[in-house]
C-alpha cells in the first residue's frame, strides 16, 4: 500500500522542484520596466485611497480630533497611546477578538474544504452545496441579522424548538455569556464559508489531471488519491485561506454589532466595535485612531510571524 502512492507523490514533488529552479533561472534577466508598468495602476489607487488615509489617520491619533470637527489641530503627543495601553476595555475587547478568531478559523477552513471536495468530486446533492454558498454569502448583513435573530429566539426560535425535540432544554443563545460568542461563530460560519469554498474550488481545478491518472494507474483508490494527490496539492491554498481567514476574523464587527451589540456584559464586544463606539458614538476620533493603530501594530507583528512560518514551509 505504501509503495502505491510514491510515483504520484514523486511526480508532484518533482514538478514543484523544477518550478522553483526555473523561477530562479528565468526571473533574473527580466527586471525593471515591465514590472512597474503592471503594478502602477494598482499602486496609484492604493497610495491615494489607502496609504494617504492611513497617514491622515495616524496623524489624527496624535491629536484630540473629534467627530464634531473641533480640537483637530491640538497635538497631544503620545497621550492617546498611553491611555490606550492602560485601558482595560482595549485589552478585554482584544481578547474577545482573538477568541472569536480562534473559534472561527478552523471550522471555516475545514467546512469549506469538505464542501469544495463534495462539489468537485460530484457527490450527490451538489445543488445543495452550491445553494449553501450562493444563498448565504450573497446576503447583506442586515438580512443575516434578521434570519438569525429569529432562529436564536429563546422562546419561539427554531433552534430551541429543535433542541426540545431531542428533550434538551433551550439555551439563551445570544444573551448567555457562556454561549453568545459560540452563537456568533455559528452565524459567521454559515454566512462567510462560501468565500473559502470558492477559493478551494478554484484551486481544485488547477490540479493537473496527469497526477490523478498516474495515481490511478498505480492502482490508487479514490481515498488514496484524495490523501496523496489532492490534499498535498491544496497545501498552498490552505495556507492562503488560513492567513486570509485569520485577518478577516480579526476584523469582525458587523454581525456582532447587529446581533448582540457586544453584549451580554461585553462578552462578545470586538475591538473594532470599541473603536467604532469611541470614534462615532463618543466622537473621540483621535483616541479611536490611536486604539486602531495599536491594534494594527499587533496584527502586523502577527502577520510577519505568520508569513515567516508559511514561507519557511514552502521552501
Amino acid at each position: 500500500m505504501a509503495s502505491v502512492s510514491t510515483p504520484a507523490r514523486r511526480a508532484a514533488a518533482g514538478s514543484r522542484r523544477t518550478g522553483f529552479r526555473r523561477a530562479a533561472a528565468t526571473d533574473r534577466p527580466r527586471s525593471g520596466g515591465a514590472g512597474w508598468l503592471f503594478a502602477t495602476p494598482f499602486l496609484a489607487f492604493f497610495t491615494l485611497f489607502l496609504i494617504v488615509p492611513i497617514g491622515i489617520g495616524l496623524w489624527m491619533s496624535f491629536t484630540d480630533a473629534s467627530l464634531t470637527g473641533h480640537g483637530d489641530n491640538t497635538l497631544v503627543g503620545l497621550d492617546n497611546y498611553t491611555e490606550a495601553f492602560g485601558d482595560s476595555q482595549v485589552w478585554q475587547t482584544l481578547g474577545n477578538t482573538v477568541w472569536f478568531t480562534v473559534l472561527t478559523t478552523v471550522p471555516l477552513v475545514l467546512v469549506a474544504l469538505v464542501m469544495a471536495l463534495l462539489v468537485y468530486t460530484g457527490m450527490p446533492g451538489q445543488w445543495l452545496w452550491r445553494l449553501a454558498f450562493f444563498a448565504s454569502h450573497l446576503l447583506p448583513v442586515a438580512v443575516v441579522y434578521q434570519i438569525w435573530s429569529m432562529l436564536f429566539q429563546p422562546d419561539r426560535g427554531m433552534l430551541n424548538g429543535l433542541l426540545k425535540i431531542f428533550g434538551i432544554d433551550g439555551i439563551a443563545w445570544l444573551t448567555d455569556e457562556k454561549y453568545a460568542m459560540w452563537s456568533i461563530a455559528l452565524v459567521t460560519l454559515w454566512w462567510t464559508v462560501g468565500f473559502n469554498f470558492l477559493l478551494y474550488l478554484a484551486a481544485l481545478q488547477a490540479i493537473p489531471d496527469h497526477l490523478y491518472e498516474a495515481a490511478a494507474l498505480d492502482g490508487a483508490g479514490a481515498w488514496r488519491r484524495l490523501w496523496s494527490v489532492t490534499l498535498p496539492q491544496l497545501r498552498r491554498t490552505t495556507g492562503l485561506i488560513a492567513v486570509l481567514q485569520v485577518m478577516a476574523s480579526l476584523k469582525v464587527f458587523d454581525q456582532i454589532y447587529l446581533l448582540t451589540k457586544g453584549g451580554p456584559n461585553g462578552a462578545t464586544r470586538p475591538i473594532l466595535e470599541y473603536i467604532y463606539d469611541t470614534g462615532f458614538t463618543n466622537y473621540r476620533l483621535g483616541y479611536a485612531s490611536a486604539v486602531s493603530y495599536v491594534f494594527f501594530g499587533l496584527i502586523i507583528i502577527l502577520s510577519i510571524a505568520q508569513l515567516k512560518i508559511f514561507s519557511r514551509r514552502e521552501d
Binding site: 492604493f46 489607502l50 496609504i51 488615509p53 492611513i54 489617520g57 486570509l244 485577518m247 480579526l250 476584523k251 464587527f253 473594532l272 473603536i275 467604532y276 470614534g279 462615532f280 479611536a288 485612531s289 486602531s292 491594534f295 494594527f296 496584527i299 502586523i300 502577520s303
Partner: peptide, 9 residues
C-alpha cells in the same frame, strides 16, 4: 494593508 480596520479609514 489587508488588516487595516476599515472603520478608521
Amino acid at each position: 494593508s489587508i488588516m487595516v480596520p476599515p472603520q478608521i479609514l
